Amino acid sequence: MKLIVEKLVTELNHQAIVQDISFYVNEGEFVGVIGPNGSGKSTLLKTLYRVLKPAEGAVMLDDEAITSYQHKEFAKKVAVVGQESSVPFDFSVLDLVLMGRNPHKRLLDQETKVDHDIAIDALKHVGLEGYEQRSFATLSGGEKQRVIIARAIAQEPSFFILDEPTNHLDIHHQLHILDVLQRSNMTVLTALHDLNLAASYCDRIIVMQDGRLVANGSPKETLTKQLLEEVFQVEATIWTHPLTQKVQVMYVSPGMKQGIFDHQLKSWLQS
Rank of each mutant, 00 (worst) to 15 (best):
V180W: 08
G141F: 11
S135I: 11
Q145S: 09
E164V: 12
L195V: 01
V207F: 09
L228E: 05
S200T: 13
V180A: 06
L189K: 08
Q155A: 06
H172T: 11
R134P: 06
Q174N: 05
E229Y: 10
L195E: 03
L162W: 10
E221T: 11
I205S: 05
S184T: 01
T224K: 09
N185V: 00
S158D: 15
D179A: 03
R151L: 05
L228F: 07
L223S: 07
G141E: 03
H172R: 14
N185M: 07
E229S: 14
I205N: 05
D203W: 02
I205H: 04
V231T: 13
N196P: 01
L169H: 06
H168V: 11
Y201H: 02
V231W: 10
S140W: 08
S158V: 07
H193Y: 10
F136L: 10
R204I: 04
V231L: 07
A191V: 15
N185L: 08
H172M: 03
H172S: 11
L175K: 02
Q209H: 14
R151V: 07
F232D: 09
A236V: 10
R134Y: 14
L189E: 08
E229V: 02
F136E: 01
S184Q: 03
A150I: 03
Q226D: 14
N167G: 01
M208A: 03
G141T: 03
I177A: 06
S140P: 12
T190L: 15
L175Q: 02
E143A: 09
F232R: 10
P219L: 04
E221G: 00
S158M: 12
T222A: 10
P219M: 08
K144E: 08
D179Q: 13
H176I: 00
H173F: 15
I153D: 09
D163H: 13
V180L: 13
S140A: 13
M208W: 01
L181N: 00
D163I: 11
F136H: 00
A199C: 14
H176A: 12
D203V: 01
G211F: 05
L197M: 12
Q145V: 10
E143Q: 15
I206G: 04
L227H: 04
I177G: 06
P157L: 12
E156F: 00
E221F: 05
R146W: 04
Q133Y: 10
M186E: 10
H176Q: 13
F159V: 15
L223T: 06
V231F: 08
L175E: 01
Q174V: 02
T166I: 06
I148D: 01
Q174W: 08
G141P: 07
V180R: 07
K144N: 07
T138R: 06
L228W: 08
Q209Y: 12
L181T: 00
K220Y: 11
L178M: 14
L227G: 01
D203L: 03
A137V: 01
Q145M: 11
M186V: 03
I149Q: 03
V188Y: 06
M208R: 02
L197N: 01
F160Y: 15
L213E: 08
T166E: 03
H172Y: 15
Y201E: 01
I171G: 10
A236C: 11
F232C: 11
F159K: 11
I153P: 12
L139Y: 05
Q233K: 14
A150D: 01
L162M: 14
G217E: 07
Q226A: 14
L181H: 00
E156Y: 00
